[in-house]
Design a protein around this nucleic acid. Structure first.
Ligand SMILES: [Mn+2]
Ligand SMILES: [Mn+2]
Ligand SMILES: [Zn+2]
Ligand SMILES: [Zn+2]
Lengths: 160, 160
DNA sequence: TTGTAATTGAATATCATTCTCAATTACATT
DNA sequence: AATGTAATTGAGAATGATATTCAATTACAA
């Protein structure tokens, strides 16, 4: 199970930064080890409750930058009402398609994007720390639904 | 000046959606016509004040979805504390580099990304309505600064 | 001119995230 | 094992951008 490795890496990070390995932080590590794919701060907190842990939501929020800093997880898609995270330990860099109807998130890898990103940064003397290609639209399932019922198109958009 | 065309397209959109072309909306159009590159809701409101317009911030927020729906502007980079917009009328689709030190936003176009996006969507039967490649990091100016002073690296990250 | 649904400003709500603070705890040092 | 001290915690309050409520106003089709 990944838990032991997660904990090891996290402890190492904490020590390097003169931070303490508390009971609460251990429990948060256990909670994210169980998360699958994409999750948010509240999901972590819910999992903690399932674990009979009383770690507060404030502490969850305080732990998130540490989890990211230690290389265990990362922010994923932007632009929703809450920030979504995912574990990245030993997982290749990838991007996301997000269904604006049902919220489904589809991962995809794409070597071309990595190359493009490199080129662009070199040309602009930009030092990249992070990059994301995010595609929004309708997933296959929701497209089928659209054919039957009319979907919730907010506005009529018909120009040019 | 683009203002007349902006207004025409906006009026057309409003009519198609049984919405009214109010004094306030006319003034907001005038305000965004003046904005350059990237701006936020508060910027629009400030410009309105400069125009001696009393349009409220609430109305600015209410008008934003209409401006987007009418194809005049779009959301730009994600993930900051406020949403950033830009006019897209007759402007080609492009992406962004964002400096996490000074906030500078650099536009870039990239045909390869457009192709990649098409491929991925086809393979996954995904109907894309929008996609963004966003690169975060340090701009040229901030890189130079980093060489002199030590920058605000929050954590020591040294693993693997 | 009239009827009516849309719109407005002001105030208030929302709600994810961050902060404050007094009490507690990890852990390096003795 | 006891101590010193800085880091951490939970609870609750604060933040702040954006959304909503509501009574008064307005656009505009008929
Ligand atoms: Mn993912
Ligand atoms: Mn741009
Ligand atoms: Zn869907
Ligand atoms: Zn910069």
């Amino acid at each position: 199970m990944a838990f032991a490795i997660y904990e090891e890496q996290f402890r190492y990070f904490l020590k390097r930064n003169n931070l303490k390995f508390t009971k609460e932080r251990r429990e948060v590590i256990a909670a994210i080890a169980i998360q699958r794919n994409h999750f948010n701060a509240e999901d972590i907190h819910q999992q903690l409750k399932k674990q009979k842990s009383n770690v507060s939501l404030a502490t969850v929020y305080r732990t998130i930058p540490l989890l990211i800093g230690s290389g265990l997880m990362t922010e994923t898609t932007y632009g929703g009402e809450r920030i979504i995270y995912e574990k990245i330990y030993n997982k290749p860099h990838h991007h996301h398609m997000v269904c604006i109807n049902c919220g489904k998130i589809i991962d995809f890898t794409c070597p071309d994007v990595e190359i493009v990103q490199n080129d662009i940064c070199q040309k602009n003397f930009f030092l990249s720390t992070e990059y994301r290609l995010e595609i929004k639209g309708y997933c296959q399932t929701c497209r089928k639904k659209m054919k039957n019922k009319k979907m919730n198109r907010t506005f009529i958009q018909e120009f040019k």
